[in-house]
Design a protein around this nucleic acid. Structure first.
Lengths: 116, 116
DNA sequence: ATGCTGTGCAACTACAGAGTTGCACGTCGT
DNA sequence: ACGACGTGCAACTCTGTAGTTGCACAGCAT
């Protein structure tokens, strides 16, 4: 995954965002409620509103949530696209490893046959 | 994803492990070479051998690599299982969000029809 | 036996990020 | 106009972790 690749940057952001348990919890709440503000979300999580705001910023940068201004409040929504992309990337990586391992295994077996 | 769930712990470990770019690079090298030692891997990465060892420990705890002792050296191998599990978890989550969003959208449209 | 090479352990530095608090500003309802 | 509420900004603390260096120990070769 070359760092110049824009898709790579997206994946990195998603992984970093999901690595934090509080952020996963926030995503869970958001997906459940469909829409919520930072203040509301702070009630369902053991940290301050400001901490929630920071987490939401990270999630926004990762493309996992979307912020919409409505008067004096900001409503957040879940965005599945980035998550989906990352899931596909990961599945592809797992597949790649599987194939490489299979190739190496064939190699080892061939070498063994040559010995005996 | 409830924290008591053993599968959740596995997923968390994988996410944390993959969130670091150096660790992803190490996994790339490992998957490419099939097998390598910490000392060898340190040559392909811009950090010291000790740093590499620490990263490999994290990857091992996450179940992404396996360490095998061979005389005085320790050979590391990639393990696709944990990655595969996490990829599936993520795909499931993306799907879940999609369905929730679809449900909410229907809700909103129904409410709009009631208004007009 | 001795030197070379790969690991392991420990102490240390440094920086990023998770969290907090306090206050100022815009917005809504009355 | 005024109070209440939601948000934004800034400064600060603190812990975790990535990284380093130095040294001791174990295994291999000659």
């Amino acid at each position: 995954m070359n760092p110049e690749d824009p898709a790579a940057a997206l994946v990195t952001g998603v992984l970093v965002a999901l690595a934090d348990p509080t952020r996963r919890q926030l995503l869970d709440l958001l997906a459940d409620q469909g829409q919520a503000t930072a203040t509301t979300l702070a009630e369902g999580v053991p940290v301050s509103r400001q901490a929630v705001v920071k987490h939401l910023t990270v999630l926004d940068d990762a493309g996992l949530v979307e912020a919409t201004r409505a008067g004096r409040e900001v409503r957040y929504t879940v965005r599945p696209d980035a998550l989906d992309t990352t899931a596909r990337w990961m599945a592809g990586l797992a597949d790649q490893w599987d194939r490489r391992l299979a190739r190496i295994k064939r190699f080892a077996e061939a070498a063994e046959r040559d010995d005996t």
